[in-house]
Design a protein around this nucleic acid. Structure first.
Lengths: 134, 134
DNA sequence: AAGAAAAGTGATAATAATTATCAGTTTACA
DNA sequence: TGTAAACTGATAATTATTATCACTTTTCTT
């Protein structure tokens, strides 16, 4: 794989963004920063980096795919209110692979856990709203 | 929700199918059984049943969504060779929700685990091939 | 440093899954 | 039995993603 300025720009945005942006989100940021990049290039490079293992593709309940520069084993949480995606530490589900392999006899190469719920910030906001309504 | 013949037919196919069919697969079966059903009707009813909780929508690494009549808490395994989707018992990951809630302070309403690997049948097939090549 | 092959790019057409629309049909229930 | 609400088939529209293609960059060889 050759060096490409565009690819590095995409990677930088991914690294700065805690909430796991989609291809289009990255494209919009670059466009606003007066780049001449094409959406196809964003997709191309995200997929290339994902298949080389430099980044990770998250495909959960959402329509779009989202990407994560953190390739450490960890899980994801999608807030049903604000839509942001958060990391969840590996240790919430220890030995899952071992147990699943023992139980099924299948070879397990990878697995993803996606949680759905309400993040702390949105829980707080709901509390505020309740106060006002009282 | 009113009764509809088409919806019940769709549900029946879902119940008979162990490997969690997609909307199009169900559509094809009905078409072959000389039904006059429309693909839109299949999608409509699958989504309706999924949001009423009668069935479950599985959205993993695949492009298409797949559906499951089993709404008991359980996980899924996608075979990277044959593409079939299998059920994985809940007990491979006990207390995941409790741990995740404690660790994050988020409210968790649901979660999905999708495993990727090779199913037993495909493991056997690979062994056969190895024998032949020796 | 020059020049050729390989890899990458932007623009846009194509694809594929899913959803929206709409006129006609079925269901439920007063 | 009639009417409002829900549902249907056909098909157009939408949305995310991928393929194509002429052109540009990068890399590697000499």
């Amino acid at each position: 794989m050759n060096y490409s300025k565009q690819r590095e720009e995409i990677y930088e945005i991914l690294k700065e963004n805690v909430v796991h942006p989609s291809a289009e989100y990255i494209y919009d940021i670059l466009k606003k920063a007066n780049s001449n990049i094409s959406l196809a290039t964003v997709y191309r490079n995200l997929n290339k980096m994902a298949s080389s293992g430099r980044i990770k593709k998250i495909e959960g309940l959402e329509e779009k795919a989202h990407f994560d520069h953190n390739t450490f084993e960890h899980y994801h949480f999608i807030c049903q209110k604000c839509g942001r995606i958060f990391d969840i530490d590996k240790e919430v589900a220890p030995e899952v692979v071992i147990r699943a392999q023992e139980k099924t006899g299948f070879i397990i190469n990878s697995y993803d856990i996606v949680f759905h719920g309400i993040c702390r910030e949105c829980i707080e906001k709901e509390k505020e709203n309740d106060k006002i309504c009282m």
